[in-house]
Nucleic acid binder design. Structure first.
Lengths: 201, 201, 201, 201
DNA sequence: GATGAATGAGGGTTCATTCAT
DNA sequence: TATGAATGAACCCTCATTCAT
């Protein structure tokens, strides 16, 4: 239910977030000025301060929104009764689908951690660790059940997440492959990577 | 035989590169000022301009040095006579070993592409494509020989590179695992990912 | 109805123009800094940028204002029905009167042409040529009617203008001569210079 | 006996003066940097300091050289036995001839007085006053003999000099008129301007 | 909510000049 | 004489932010 960006129906605060997201993703937090955001929104720079107390607050809001959105979305996925292999495949598909649809948020969330002030950094890191626990639990279960064959659960978790998130660095929706193709390819790729025969799915 | 003032035996130009690398990796190009670099080196900001014409030139130099170093290093690796599987494993170990030893260069090279002006971007992109061609050729060969079992060589190449490079996002030399452990784990991970049975190595 | 801080009842933009005019006339465009202008106005240097986008824009504005002011003022002079000699005398008096009252504008307009960027230079040059056409037309008329006796209308025009404008290089209002004295002297000087007997006026 | 500018036969000090003259005339003293001069000469900026102690010293030298050259040249002109009118015509021709051949020196000498530090300004002003005394004496003589018909000798002197020097602001050697044409036109122009009938020459 | 003018800090860069070589 | 590296001040301009309207 996407609404037009500069529509009068969209509140200024949301427009600020939208434009900030696009600008920061493209240029980086430090390279984006409040005036650039204001110009994109179509208001005076000082008007932004009616909605966000600082530039930093905008960044924190963008990253927090992304992480809570990701966690909430996983809550909506149903995996009860699945084997670890099926769950991991499901998670891989979910992660790719969710992230490919939000390249800017993903990019910012990984790149601009360094631009967060300590307190803001802490809240985002907490959310990130919470999310990382999801594949970690699946891998732990697969290792316990003998369905996966891996040396180190932590390394495997990081490798899985890095592989999945890495899709965003090169995937183009206009390319030869559809998002569904990528999901399929990666689900298989990941399962093989954790030493799980695909027939066992 | 001019000796640098705050002499550590290293020439000023190299010290500028070293400090710039560390600062940009930590804070991002846009967030690093010439004065910060100069302070780190121990000279006045204007002295930098005796060695580099612009701040942008420093960034470009850092990225070009990294990419040419990486390409040169691979030239020094001997893989003649190896099967595609053995070559890919060798490449995986090489890539991880080289990159883990240079986390700042790797980070900058992937993250500050957006900070490059068009001409500089083009030269770096050319080097990047040249490097990507290395695993791509191996994968093509493995696919042709039937040793690998993959759907799409391009996707597999990107997935492999993203997985390998992703190590740098979480690997700490002080951690539980040695670089050698990671190499082993990932070599196996990658081979399984391209559908190659380890015994076939 | 915002009132300027260091209120003299004059808007900041106008105060910037006034102080820039005085400073540039005295020291030259290149030797005047934005901080000097700001100090003279009584604001922070950055405040200037709320009113003028660049230092160059201030210079261009000063010169454009002078030229349009001069052209407009001549429009207000009535010379219908006068002989060429009387018109030239009138013009000489007008030019001296107008310029003597604005020594800084005159000085800048002739001296800082070189400091104008190409586009700005072009607009000012167009205005200058428009003004030079005024005495040129009078001299052409006087030559056609036989009232003036000159070799070359263009040279005569330039000589007349250079002579008149030259007054500004040495005239001091505190000196022995009044502006009216100068007008009288130069009107006669110019008429004689174009070979016109004063009785023919 | 003009020697090629960048020739090895020309001493560096002279090349510095030549290039400084051209640059300052075109861009103004404040806008010319020591590096620009050095580049034009083909040496390192610090080499200039082997020949001139400061940038200011170069400017002073250029202006002093011009004024003493002008005064010396007039000493070489013979006007003994001439009437005031003939002498003034001779002076007009001399001034135009000398100045038209040295547009850069003339321009700098009139424009960059403000860039001189107090002591340097004083020495140049003294030379200028010495030169102004030349036409002033002629005019005084012509007024005393009744050959000239003017109100005020000082105003006439200034008007004459401003008119003559003004030629440099518009004369182009590539134009329709030769330098000789200008001399003729102005000699007549000036004589008429001081109320002297040309037949009286 | 939004504006425009203001601020003080700081941005990248250039300046004239010095000095060891 | 000439060089190249260095300095500290200054350049124009942009920054995030504030505040009266």
């Amino acid at each position: 239910m996407a609404r037009p960006k500069a529509s009068t129906g969209v509140k200024t605060a949301d427009r600020i977030l939208d434009e900030s997201l696009a600008l920061i993703a493209r240029l980086g937090y430090a390279a984006v000025s409040m005036r650039m955001i204001a110009d994109a929104v179509g208001v005076n720079a000082s008007a932004i301060y009616n909605h966000f107390p600082t530039k930093q607050a905008i960044l924190h809001r963008l990253m927090a929104d992304h992480m809570t959105g990701l966690l909430d979305a996983w809550q909506g996925e149903i995996t009860t009764g699945m084997t670890p292999a099926a769950t991991l495949a499901h998670f891989a598909r979910f992660h790719i689908r969710y992230n490919i649809a939000r390249p800017d948020q993903v990019f910012i969330s990984y790149m601009e951690l360094r631009a967060l002030e300590p307190d803001n950094f802490e809240t985002i890191e907490t959310l990130r660790r919470e999310y990382e626990q999801i594949p970690r639990s699946i891998i732990d279960a697969g290792q316990a059940s003998g369905q996966f064959e891996i040396d180190d659960a932590h390394v495997a978790t990081m490798a899985v997440l890095a592989s999945l998130t890495g899709v965003n660095t090169w995937f183009k929706t206009t390319g030869r492959l559809s998002a569904k193709d990528i999901e399929n390819t990666y689900a298989a790729f990941i399962l093989r990577a954790v030493g799980c025969k695909l027939e066992e799915l």
